Simulated scan of single mutants.
Amino acid sequence: MTRTPDQAELNLEIEREVEVDGVGMGILSDGSPYLTLRGLARMCGVDESSIRGITAHWNDDAPPPRVERIKKALRDQGFSKRLPYISIIKDGATHYACTDLVCMAFLEYYAFESKPAVQKAVENYRVLARKTFRDFIYARLGYDPKAAQVLAWERFHERIDLVYDSVPDGYFSIFKETADVQLALIREGACPGCKFIPDSSIGNLWGKEWRGKTLELQFGARIEYDHYFPDSYPQSKSNPQGAHAYPDAARAYFKRWLREAYIAHGLPNYLKTKVADKTLTAPIATATLTAIQKSIGIAPPTRRLGGR
C-alpha cells in the first residue's frame, strides 16, 4: 500500500503501540489514539483482508458500495484525507494507524449496514458509544496525556528556583525575562525540557544583537554569572554554566527587541527547527506561535509551521 501522506502527518511518530486482547492499538506523537489495520479488523469482527480490501479501493473512480458508504460517513464528518490510515515508518517497518473517525466509521458500517450485521462490531460500537474512542485507547494503554506537561511544569519551576537567586543585583537574565514565552509553550502543549531550551535560542540571538550594535556603549557592559541546571537535566553534569546577565538599563530595549524581532521572526524559525527534529508537532508549534503573537498584537501565522 503506497500513499502520499498529508504534510502534517510527516512529523508524526508512534508514541506507544501495544496489543491488548489481540487488538493492536497505540498513540501517535500528537496524542491521537489509533488502531492498527489488524486491530480495526478484530474490533469489527472481520478478517484483516476485508479491511485491506476496502483501503485498496479507497480512491477508485467508482469504488464498491461498501467503500462508498464508509467514505460518505467520513465525508459527513469533515474527513477528506486521501486514505483512511496514516503510514509511519518505525524501526524499518511500516505501521498503519487508523484514528478515531475512521475506526468508528468502519465499526458503524459492519454493525449496522453490512449484510448480515457483524455481532462483534455491534458490541464494540456500543462500548465506544458509551466511552469516547480516545478514552478507550488511553485506558487500555494506561496513558496519561498530561504527564509530559506536568513534567514540563516541574522542570520549569526547578529552573526558576535555581535562576532567581543566581542573577546579580542590577542585572537581568534571559531566562527570567522570557518566562512568559516558556509559559505559553507549556500551556499550548509543548514541553520544554533538557532537549528544548527556548531561552538558549533567545540568548544566542540577543547576544548577536548586543554585540552587533555595541549596546554596551549605551547601557554598560554585560557580565558573566554562574547559571545552574537542575539535577534532572543532563546539562547539570557540567554545572555551573557560563551565562550572561545584562544591565537593568537595557531591560526596556530587550523587551522591545523580544517583541519586534524575536517573537516576530526568531521564534517562528526556532519552532520550525523543533518541528523538523520532531521535538514538537506542527499543530502544537503553530498554536504556540499564534497564542504568543496574538498576545502582543502580531497577526497569527496563516500557515501551519512545518507545513507547505
Rank of each mutant, 00 (worst) to 15 (best):
P5T: 05
Q7F: 05
E9K: 14
N11W: 15
L12M: 08
E13G: 12
E15F: 13
E19H: 03
G24M: 00
G24P: 09
G26A: 01
Y34W: 10
L37A: 03
L40S: 10
V46A: 05
D60A: 11
D61S: 15
D61P: 03
P64C: 09
V67L: 03
V67P: 00
E68H: 12
K71Q: 04
L74G: 12
D76M: 12
F79L: 14
P84R: 14
I86W: 15
I86C: 08
I88C: 03
K90S: 11
T94V: 06
M104P: 02
M104K: 08
A105I: 07
A111V: 07
P116A: 07
A117E: 04
Q119W: 11
K120F: 03
K120M: 01
V122W: 00
E123Y: 04
L128Y: 09
T132D: 07
F133T: 01
I137T: 14
A139L: 13
D144H: 06
P145L: 03
A147W: 10
A148H: 02
F156S: 08
F156L: 08
H157G: 09
L162S: 02
Y164D: 07
V167A: 00
F175R: 00
T178F: 01
T178Y: 04
D180V: 08
L185V: 10
L185M: 12
I186V: 15
C194N: 05
C194G: 05
K195G: 09
F196L: 10
F196T: 15
D199V: 06
S200I: 06
S200C: 10
L205T: 13
K208Y: 02
W210C: 04
R211F: 06
F219W: 02
R222A: 01
R222T: 03
Q235W: 00
Y246W: 15
K255L: 08
L258I: 01
R259C: 08
E260Q: 12
A261C: 11
I263C: 08
L267V: 05
P268L: 07
K274G: 03
D277E: 12
K278Y: 03
T281H: 03
A282H: 06
I284R: 08
A285F: 08
T288E: 11
T290H: 03
T290Y: 00
I292R: 04
Q293C: 14
Q293V: 01
S295V: 07
P300T: 11
P300C: 00
T302D: 05
T302F: 09
R303W: 12
G306W: 14
